[in-house]
């Protein structure tokens, strides 16, 4: 895919992705809107805006960059990004979570097009990404592996097992994006099980750490560029985001982690996103 840096186009795509997320979760009557809305800019950067070297018309292209959605619950945003990038029609999105749909409640590589690996159980994606990155090195291929983690997710011990492996094997083809939205299911990350200092922990594990505002396209692209230029060690982009961003009542609201809006809330959400919804 060719890279898009047109500001208006990027903003339009992020908005379109957010509308899809709300629509999908509303139609499904369940799902996880909060984290998906917060990651809209990152999803757009990776997929339609072309940070990932991919061929949507050839989803299993050997040399493609890989993407692992370790925090699989925010797949509404992922599926919308795949559709906007052209892997499948946007008309498919409303089948999310319905019987027979390729768009499962959590990503399934055997059903959905463009999904490099299944996920849904937290804490595993960085290990998988390392395996992909090792395979690239063994085969002398230049593809990169991107993996998206949550700030609650890093409470899982396996993340740190994997963090060690990435540096031990000098996997500079791994780029992790940590969605630092400060929230998990039961409350604030700092109150449930503090993970601070995040940057310090990853630095201590030997990673190149870049901290950005994860809802700002310029900062996202700049971070990806710096990650690509970093040799000898993996990079983690700690992206501060607003969970639920774009929908007034979902922003920074813990209860919108994994819940569908009712009809009234749906109208409100869509109008926040500039659409006058007709139900």
């Amino acid at each position: 895919m060719t890279k898009t840096r047109d500001k208006q186009k990027l903003a339009d795509q992020a908005l379109r992705l957010r509308r899809h997320v709300v629509e999908m979760v509303y139609q499904a009557g369940s799902g996880h809107p909060g984290g998906a809305l917060g990651m809209a800019e990152v999803f757009v950067s990776l997929y339609p805006a072309g940070e990932l070297k991919i061929r949507p018309e050839e989803p299993k292209w050997d040399d493609r960059d890989r993407f692992v959605l370790s925090k699989g619950h925010i797949c509404p945003g992922y599926y919308a990004a795949l559709a906007i990038a052209g892997y499948f029609s946007e008309d498919l999105l409303p089948t999310f979570r319905k019987l027979g749909s390729p768009l499962q409640g959590h990503p399934c590589m055997l059903k959905g097009t463009g999904i490099d690996v299944s996920s849904g159980s937290l804490g595993q994606g960085l290990s998988v990404a390392n395996g992909m990155a090792i395979a690239a090195k063994l085969d002398g291929k230049s593809y990169r592996v991107y993996v998206m983690l949550g700030d609650g997710e890093v409470q899982e011990g396996q993340v740190w097992e994997a963090a060690m492996s990435s540096t031990h094997y000098k996997l500079d083809n791994v780029c992790a994006i940590l969605d630092s939205n400060g929230l998990q299911i039961d409350g604030k990350v700092s109150e449930i099980m503090g993970v601070a200092p995040l940057a310090g922990k990853w630095e201590a594990f030997g990673w190149n750490v870049i901290e950005i505002d994860g809802n700002d396209f310029d900062q996202i692209f700049d971070a990806f560029d710096r990650a690509r230029a970093t040799k000898g060690k993996p990079t983690i982009i700690i992206a501060r985001t607003i969970k639920g961003k774009g929908v007034s009542f979902m922003e920074n609201a813990c209860e919108w982690h994994g819940k569908a809006p009712n009809e009234e809330q749906y109208r409100q959400a869509m109008s926040d996103l500039g659409v006058h919804a007709t139900v």
């Binding site: 595993q124 998988v128 992909m132």
Partner: peptide, 10 residues
């Protein structure tokens, strides 16, 4: 899981 990632890449 690292083995799983390797398997996805052949």
């Amino acid at each position: 899981d690292t083995a799983a990632g390797l398997a996805t890449c052949g």
